[in-house]
Design a protein around this nucleic acid. Structure first.
Lengths: 148, 148
DNA sequence: GTCGCTGCAAAGACTTTGCAACCCG
DNA sequence: CGGGTTGCAAAGTCTTTGCAGCGAC
């Protein structure tokens, strides 16, 4: 219930932002963005495409990529580029946050670390950098795979 | 001087490890590994290849990739996979460490953070993960690009 | 009605693979 | 000498791009 209204609000938020940027809200875009936000995990472009096909059988994978790039330009999506697990997207929480990746089953979990930006900013400043973003991936075994 | 013996020692260390794994030390491999270690920055596969060609004109890019994968399997190289800046390699310091990446000029700098593994291990444990590795990239502007 | 967007197919960048010849140990 | 390694070319994966037609505003 709360879950549902959350994703609905997030969808409205993203669509409003795109509109304010002068972008057109085509049915394809709305369907793609909805699919990304509704996905419980961190879907690949292919998975997003598959989720939409039942509703819009003519939507092409190219349009999915174009929409993802649109969202990236608007800072409304997080693009996790893995060579081993493909590019994964997160439009629910576009703000950078650490991820835990299971090297056995490939599951990706979100985490939070309150002072992470203080830490990365400090590291950057020491070297004369001005930090604007970060990415922290922690690889290991998830609870299920640890047991086995 | 010290710099030179450092890279020489590192080269010997890597070669000894490969030998202990039963791998053959071909001239190509030695040249490739030396080129990666001698490179002051974080070279691409292409840059490694170019660095070797004057000495071994017949070495193919495929062999460079194969050797890189050999080093990865032996945990003797760090593979920084960027979509925007290509895959970059670091055979000097194969142990994971944070990197600073300039989003304007593309320079990649090494950093150290003493308690980083305590931090990542803690984050992982909270979620029931057992961490084995990590990657921390901090994006921003390098000192030179900040000035401009 | 305009001009951005879509869908198709083709191109593109990067990396891996198949295979015959080669050569390290 | 045997089997790992090399070099070439071809294949493979993922993503982007060109372009004609379409449709959101």
């Amino acid at each position: 219930m709360t879950q549902k209204t959350d994703t609905q609000n997030r969808l409205k938020q993203v669509l409003a932002h795109l509109k304010s940027l002068g972008k057109r809200l085509t049915p394809q875009r709305i369907a793609i963005i909805k699919a990304i936000i509704d996905h419980p995990g961190h879907p690949t472009a292919e998975q997003i495409h598959q989720a939409i096909l039942p509703h819009y059988p003519t939507v092409s994978l190219a349009t999915v990529y174009k929409t993802i790039n649109l969202l990236k330009a608007a800072d409304e999506i997080l693009d996790l580029e893995f060579h081993d697990y493909g590019s994964r997207y997160d439009a629910r929480r576009p703000h950078p946050h650490p991820h835990l990746i299971c090297t056995r089953c490939g599951v990706i979990m979100d985490t939070e670390l309150a002072d992470i930006e203080t830490l990365t900013d400090g590291l950057a400043r020491k070297a004369g950098f001005s930090a604007s973003s970060f990415r922290l991936d922690i690889f290991g075994l998830c609870p299920k795979c640890t047991q086995k």
